[in-house]
Design a protein around this nucleic acid. Structure first.
Lengths: 319, 319
DNA sequence: CACCGTTACGGTATCCGTAAGGATT
DNA sequence: AATCCTTACGGATACCGTAACGGTG
């Protein structure tokens, strides 16, 4: 006698639901995205609704226009479950072949360009089979990418106050420098002050970046109003215009390479503007593959696999 | 042409895995628990392992003895997904029939016996079709029950510092009283002090309860060593022995009813021992049914559905 | 008419339960 | 001998893709 299970939830249906929503409530598009037939998707949703005994999609005139009240609640859980199912697969891949897979980093220009440079180089050497993807964005975008699972690890120079669902691993501080052309009068100053800096045309980073805000705050606190000639989108742009003689700039010290940028001089100004923070963000719900732990470790040696696990509060044993 | 999906995870298999672990790595028992055949369960696991390309169960001599390394990771996610699937079902039930279902409370003796009394009465009147289950335990046990989904709502007089995965809703404070027999010398004292109390044989609550600890701390801070004649397991026991004349007791004021306990007198001592806290704990991952919101609201009118939802979204205060 | 969602139907893969086999305590 | 897990096999079920239908702008 076949046992009557109280209606089994099927993951496939939840995946259909998520895709329909993602594709703007269009079943046909969702079907293409899922590489399946459109009536199939339609039926899956219908079965899901029948099974939960509740309408999920709002149908208006033969079209789907949105989610019902229970639908929004269902979607939230469905997304979690779909992500968990992907995490499951990861575990298998990780133990089958620890050294291949995909690693998606979300980071700022600054970190991608300078801080991560050697780390990525080492990582590639250690894990040549891992496909590496770098995504760039503002700190908020970075946290968003990690929170939605679109990125595995976020590296940013700000704490994720806005997204408490993430786990943050604090890393070292970043010194800040004033960057000037060689021979600039400031290079001969003994003890640099904000007042001296404010005499020269200034190139700051965009206000969206924590660096830009820190600089603006420092001047504001001192009651100074430097002449800002440019708000650069990233440090490379800023450096280029410093070379042109447009002004001087303030940026993390790591962005200046004394050999490469031979026409520039960096003067430490961490005491004036404070140190920049650097932190790694991961989703505590995601399964971290071995090479991900390793990447974090390479980036910040203090974070061993054990310490990350402790922070995740995911004891490895304990059924 | 049937599309080859990269291997679909099936919830049923995860449920099998969880049950096997819960039943002490015994497939036969698990099969009985799941109302299915034993070979079926065996095969599900085998398919799961094959699908994830990783061993999950440790087999030693035809028996199953534990989990492999990937197995522990898989189990953690499997449990989450199984719970989520139950939450999904809840949504359906909630919208199909908001007024019936099951409500499992985990609480202490104190709250079950006094604080919840009227709340439960009102709740039963409002939701006669909801099956109500009360489970009793120490604060830690209560948090455990909520965290594992064995209880829907926990009511306790302590904050869940040990289980950060829970959401805590702070409620009102509980006044504390010294409970004595009628006509006891302390009833004629103008301003009660710890020193006066310490003159008499004392009945305290067990050290496991926050109340017991608060009282012990207060005396210790004052450098007093009262003569503790008994550590009672709950307030009813304590009251009974106060009536017998064994000593005086300190307990939350709500535990004394001036009419019912006519032979006793309660003297407010909140200033001496501090107020007891009361808080409601829920699992932020679980779907709260309408009557659960309503129960919380009845218990603590400040927590409306909207405010609970707001708390659920924002703030698992990261340590 | 173009687009979208639903219903209908047939083939295939999957799942479940029964029966039998090997291994360990 | 008793218990436990696995393999083997047949029947029922559910799923998926093709085809045809009904609405809407």
């Amino acid at each position: 006698m076949p046992i009557r299970y109280g209606g089994n939830v099927k993951l496939q249906r939840l995946r259909c639901l998520c895709t329909i929503v993602d594709e703007g409530f269009n079943i046909s598009k969702a079907a293409r995205m899922l590489h399946t037939s459109q009536p199939g998707v339609s039926k899956q949703i219908r079965l899901l609704e029948q099974e939960l005994k509740a309408d999920i999609l709002l149908r208006r005139g033969g079209r789907i226009s949105g989610l019902t009240a229970p639908g929004t609640a269902v979607l939230a859980i469905a997304r979690q479950m779909v992500r968990d199912s992907e995490n499951l697969r990861r575990i298998g891949e990780d133990f089958a072949d620890r050294d291949s897979g995909r690693l998606i980093l979300a980071t700022t220009h600054l970190h991608a360009r300078y801080v991560l440079l050697h780390v990525v180089e080492n990582f590639r050497r250690r894990y040549p089979a891992v496909q590496l993807v770098l995504r760039q964005g503002s700190p908020n975008q970075i946290f968003q990418l990690v929170a939605t699972g679109e990125a595995d690890i976020g590296i940013s120079n700000e704490v994720a106050a806005g997204t408490p669902a993430l786990l943050e691993l604090a890393c070292g501080k970043l010194a800040r420098s004033v960057v000037v052309r060689r021979g600039h009068p400031l290079t001969r100053v003994r003890r640099l002050t904000l007042k001296q800096i404010a005499r020269y045309p200034l190139i700051t980073l965009d206000r969206l970046s924590p660096g830009g805000r820190a600089v603006a705050r420092a001047f504001a606190l001192a009651g100074l109003e430097p002449k800002i000639v440019m708000q650069a989108i990233d440090t490379d742009v800023a450096k280029a215009y410093v070379e042109l003689g447009l002004g001087i700039a303030i940026m993390p010290a790591v962005a200046v390479d004394s050999r490469r940028d031979s026409s520039l001089t960096a003067i430490d100004a961490t005491k004036l503007f404070g140190a920049g923070t650097m932190s790694i963000a991961v989703d505590p719900r995601s399964y971290l593959r071995t090479y991900m732990y390793d990447f974090i470790h390479m980036l910040s040696p203090a974070w061993t696999r054990e310490r990350v696990n402790a922070a995740l509060r995911m004891p490895p044993a304990r059924e």
